[in-house]
Simulated scan of single mutants.
Amino acid sequence: MQVKRQNISILVDDNAMRIYLVSPDKVGQYPGILFYSDIYQLGSPITRLADHLAGYGFVVAAPEIYHRQLPIGTVIEPTDIGKIQGNEAARKTATSEFDTDASAVINLLSKYEGVASQSIGAMGFCIGGHLACRAALNPLVKASVCVYPTGIHSGKLGKEKADTLTRLSEIQGELFLIFGTLDPHVPEDGRITIKQALEKSKIRHKISEYEANHTFMRDDGYRFDPVATDQAMQEIISFFQSTLVNN
């Protein structure tokens, strides 16, 4: 179905946080998805993925994750300098601030006209995959998709070491993690650490692995894999439909 797009803002800790909000054009009640970018914020590769998901019947809210550090509307270029800029903004953001932002967007979605308030999910890429996992700590989140999530196994996220791995058992919803087996940022030993922690936590989860590199779903980079991207998107849509629509 067709989608409608808008930019809104909410105040979080007295900072305006821009949210790219995209929803089905047809009036109705749809699941809401907190949608996290990678370290480069809301460039066109990310907003295209948000649009794609919304077209399958979801209200997608994508916040600027560095709204405390960078001017509203900042899109970081995926270059060596951009990588430094994105990682520096992450380093200056406390884990508690990321958590506060998640709660703010989840609260927005739960009250937003057109969102089925009991059907809230989260999704993200790279650092956003880690943030989507942390968003799942919120009991309102029924399902989370973590795409090549960085830092879960090591605790790397913001200013301080994140406790995500040790808190997995608090998650009440279901997790879906997608990894690239060629990803140097989440190597095999890191994936094993995450898998073991998930098994120990006894939460509902599934894992898919693709023979692909980090950021394989960004269509503007040399690591883009169209086939893996299409397959992953179909898995993601099916997962959200089973957990948020048909559950």
Score class of each variant (00 low, 15 high):
residue 3 V to K: 02
residue 3 V to R: 02
residue 7 N to A: 01
residue 7 N to Q: 11
residue 8 I to M: 02
residue 13 D to H: 07
residue 24 P to Y: 02
residue 25 D to P: 00
residue 32 G to V: 06
residue 35 F to N: 04
residue 35 F to Q: 06
residue 36 Y to P: 02
residue 50 A to S: 06
residue 57 G to P: 00
residue 58 F to C: 00
residue 59 V to L: 03
residue 59 V to S: 01
residue 60 V to E: 01
residue 67 H to D: 00
residue 68 R to H: 07
residue 69 Q to E: 14
residue 71 P to T: 10
residue 73 G to K: 09
residue 75 V to T: 11
residue 75 V to K: 12
residue 77 E to M: 09
residue 81 I to H: 09
residue 86 G to D: 07
residue 88 E to N: 14
residue 90 A to I: 11
residue 95 T to W: 07
residue 96 S to R: 14
residue 105 V to P: 05
residue 106 I to C: 05
residue 108 L to R: 06
residue 109 L to C: 02
residue 109 L to D: 04
residue 109 L to H: 02
residue 110 S to G: 08
residue 111 K to Y: 03
residue 115 V to Q: 08
residue 115 V to W: 07
residue 119 S to H: 11
residue 122 A to P: 07
residue 130 H to I: 04
residue 131 L to Y: 05
residue 131 L to G: 05
residue 140 L to T: 01
residue 145 V to D: 06
residue 149 P to S: 06
residue 151 G to F: 09
residue 152 I to H: 08
residue 157 L to R: 10
residue 161 K to D: 11
residue 169 S to N: 13
residue 169 S to T: 11
residue 174 E to Y: 09
residue 176 F to H: 14
residue 177 L to D: 06
residue 178 I to K: 05
residue 178 I to T: 10
residue 180 G to M: 13
residue 181 T to V: 07
residue 187 P to V: 01
residue 189 D to T: 11
residue 192 I to T: 13
residue 192 I to M: 03
residue 195 K to L: 11
residue 198 L to P: 03
residue 200 K to Y: 02
residue 202 K to L: 12
residue 204 R to M: 07
residue 205 H to C: 03
residue 212 A to K: 01
residue 217 M to N: 11
residue 218 R to I: 01
residue 223 R to G: 00
residue 223 R to M: 10
residue 224 F to S: 09
residue 229 T to E: 13
residue 231 Q to W: 06
residue 231 Q to C: 10
residue 232 A to P: 08
residue 232 A to I: 02
residue 235 E to F: 03
residue 243 T to D: 06
